[in-house]
Design a binder for these strands. Structure first.
Length: 452
DNA sequence: TTTTGAGTTGTTCGA
DNA sequence: GTCGAACAACTCAAA
């Protein structure tokens, strides 16, 4: 009897799972393992831990229905994988390549330690339709601009999803530490697990995909896919999404481009690992940012949704309430932190990572860098979002704003975006903490004054 | 090597 | 109210 280990990480599904498929093909018995690494688990934020816990529970149920089960271990992946491999008598550990700086370090460590024992780590596929680093420019270098990358990405095509396995044989008697306690959360979070991911996908294909091109920027309509958390934890693979889209439908293509942004930024982070928390543009590193007590107070107002700008505050309150923010609003609140409050983008990125269920280092932090003007984009400095006109344009009836800010419940229609004009009926809502026109000029001044 | 066209998501001003 | 131009100058990708 031969045995293989499958190391689950951000690929918490059984269908379309190349590493699982490879293990089943290579060995008679398969031990599916998830290692709870204390530092990573502790750093994830309660919302993401809650969702992860649910995904692991669902994965265990799915595996049991196939005749297997999920073995959960706590500690360093190197020690724990080695221990499981020894217990099971396995000489190969199969895993999905994560393509992130931290994961790459773990993989190298696991590969080395297994190698010392005569065992191997076999990486199969990635969490992306096209593995980061695959696509290069004609000059052979990494892409730094999205549009040419998107063209190359579309032309390259992607693999078809794999079938769900019918049966998985797993040996008895492997020690299991069990899952950590499920954290208590106050937010209303999405349903975790592979089955929920597919229900979400089907709902989007039915109700949102055909109008995505027109409606995606409308937080009041809420017709985006809401698949981000599932893509983050791999309860769904982008292959499985792309497989259901019509490449000739412009609306579907717009949605595919959003999946492509995820892959673009994964490639950028893999190429420049240090850009996770430092400005990608060298000349943007030293744009003056505010620190100190005043800056801290502005940050707290932003984080709590008390800036006095309804579109910004609605987004920040949605983040706390749902662990999710509509993409359009993410850009507006990020622009506000960086260009109206003059705070370092990493403060905002860290706050997002704390609360977002879909929090992904590459997408989140490079999204922030794009807004801050420090990332892979050529000319963003004069692109300062106006929080009022953005609200008026993308939430034309004020519905999104009133949904999250009860104090504005009596302010009708688009007037909710300018409550200072209706102070008599907006009860208890703060006045704007800054003057947007002045801070916009200040942001432009600081950018132009940056040392180069 | 040099050149050329283009660059997610915007705002403001003035005609 | 609508529309086009300006907002600096730079970097990237491809020819």
């Amino acid at each position: 009897m031969s045995t293989a280990v499958v190391w689950f990480r951000r690929d918490l599904r059984v269908a379309d799972h190349p590493a699982l498929r490879a293990a089943i093909g290579a060995a008679d018995e398969v031990v599916p393992v998830f290692v709870v690494e204390p530092a990573l688990w502790g750093g994830a934020g309660a919302n993401r831990r809650w969702f992860l816990h649910g995904c692991l529970t669902a994965l265990d149920e799915d595996l049991r229905s196939l005749g297997s089960r999920l073995v959960v271990r706590h500690g360093h992946p190197t020690e724990q994988l080695l221990a499981v491999a020894r217990e099971a008598g396995a000489d190969t550990v199969f895993a999905t390549d994560e393509c992130t700086p931290v994961a790459s370090r773990w993989e190298a460590e696991v590969r080395r330690v297994l190698g010392e024992q005569g065992a191997t780590l076999s990486l199969e596929s990635t969490s992306y339709a096209i593995p980061p680093g695959t696509l290069v420019t004609k000059a052979g270098g990494p892409f730094k601009v999205f549009t040419p990358f998107f063209r190359a990405w579309r032309a390259h095509g992607h693999a078809s999803p794999l079938e769900r396995p019918r049966r998985i044989r797993t040996p008895d008697g492997i020690t299991d530490h069990g899952l950590p306690e499920r954290p208590d959360v106050t937010a209303d979070l999405p349903e975790p697990g592979e089955a929920a991911a597919h229900r979400r996908l089907e709902a989007f294909l039915r109700d949102g995909a055909d109008t995505y091109g027109d409606d995606r920027n409308r937080p009041d309509l809420d017709r985006t896919s809401r698949l981000s958390a599932h893509l983050r934890f791999g309860t769904l693979h982008p292959r499985q999404v792309l497989d259901r889209l019509d490449p000739d439908d412009p609306s579907h293509t717009t949605f595919a481009s959003e999946l492509c942004w995820r892959e673009f930024y994964a490639g950028v982070l893999a190429e420049w690992p240090e850009s996770a928390w430092r400005s990608w543009r060298p000349d943007a590193t030293h744009v003056e940012v505010d620190t100190g007590t005043d800056a801290d107070e502005r940050f707290e107002a932003w984080a709590a949704g008390r800036t006095g700008f309804p579109f910004v505050d609605a987004g920040m309150r949605q983040l706390l309430a749902e662990g999710f923010v509509h993409n359009r609003v993410r850009m507006v609140v990020a622009s506000f932190l960086v260009k109206d409050l003059h705070l370092d983008w990493t403060r905002g990125a860290r706050h997002f990572m704390e609360h977002l269920v879909d929090g992904d280092l590459a997408s989140n932090n490079h999204g922030w860098q794009w807004t801050a003007g420090t990332g892979t984009d050529a000319s963003p400095y004069h692109r300062v979002f106006n929080p009022v006109t953005q609200g008026q344009r993308f939430d034309p009836d004020g519905d999104y704003v009133r949904r999250w800010i009860p104090e504005l419940g009596a302010v009708p229609g688009a007037a909710a975006h300018e409550p200072w004009r209706h102070a008599d009926i907006s009860t208890g809502y703060p006045s704007p903490i800054v003057d947007h026109a002045e801070e916009r000029d200040e942001a432009l001044r600081r950018w132009q004054a940056r040392p180069r």
